[in-house]
Simulated scan of single mutants.
Amino acid sequence: MIEASFGVKHYRSAKARFLKPVLMNFFAVECPRFFGPTLREKLADELINLFEALAPERTRIKPGQMLWNALDKNTRGDAPRRRYVPVVLTVVCEDDVEQLIQGARMTKISENAIARLIREAYEQGGILSSRDLALILNRETTWTSERRKRYEAEHACVLPHTGALHDMGSCVTHKTTIVRKVVLERKDPAVVARECNHCQASVDRYLKDYHRVKTLYKLDQDIEFIHLATQIAKHVIKQYIALIEEEEKTS
């Protein structure tokens, strides 16, 4: 059996959020005995043509904006029954152009645009992943992830993306950011939860894990032992240890 390529594994499921696949999937799930693949595709095409004729896109979307089917923020990307919500995203706006005119660097515009896209989707009930952003901006996922991290570091915030809210992917820096706000900045955990778009239970769990790591680290245990004892990922433990050392310097 030939193993699927990286492109197939990484991007194939992303097609499910576009209108035609959504319609075809609806017929497959709701009317499995009535419509075969060919008829489902034909019906989907006809419905799309009818919709576009009655509601031209130019009446719904402003210049620089686009429509995207984002993952519902109340469902996980790895859930068997994923839900999507249509969101209008501003890929480029007049202010972006004005900043470029004033000499701003494109990297800065890109970081601001990524933050704007993530926030716009969240405000409309959706949530974007690095893969979503990469597809929207025609970039690699590593590029969009790096730009997002730079923005979060510069603005000391956690953007509401899948890695932060659902603990998916390799994103862990949001945990350190949240703990830092409570431990070093002395903010109330409830305030931090609101600032970082997290539920109180998640913030409490991060703080609990941090103190578990701190207790063992104070007993001169190494990372391997702490990992085995707590089942916390090693790279998260390393970040917590760095924060513990920073806390000691400021105390």
Rank of each mutant, 00 (worst) to 15 (best):
E3T: 11
E3F: 04
H10V: 13
H10D: 14
Y11D: 15
S13A: 13
A14G: 09
V22F: 02
F26V: 06
T38G: 10
A53Y: 02
E57Q: 15
T59D: 06
R60P: 04
R60I: 15
P63D: 10
W68S: 05
A70K: 01
D72H: 11
K73R: 15
N74V: 08
T75W: 04
G77D: 12
A79I: 05
V91S: 13
C93Q: 14
E94G: 05
D95H: 05
G103V: 09
R105Y: 15
E111H: 02
A113I: 13
I114G: 08
R119E: 14
E120M: 02
A121Q: 02
E123C: 07
E123R: 11
G125A: 09
A134I: 12
L135Q: 09
I136H: 05
R139P: 07
T144E: 12
S145C: 09
R147G: 04
R150E: 04
Y151C: 06
Y151W: 11
E154G: 10
H155S: 03
L159E: 02
P160G: 06
H166A: 09
H166Q: 13
D167F: 11
M168F: 08
S170V: 09
C171D: 11
T173I: 06
H174V: 00
K175S: 01
T177D: 02
V179L: 01
V179Q: 00
R180H: 05
R180D: 00
K181H: 02
V191S: 08
V191F: 06
D204H: 07
T215P: 02
D222N: 13
E224R: 01
E224P: 00
L228P: 01
L228D: 12
T230P: 03
Q231P: 05
V236K: 06
V236P: 01
K238N: 14
I241T: 01
L243C: 00
E245F: 00
E247K: 02
T250S: 07
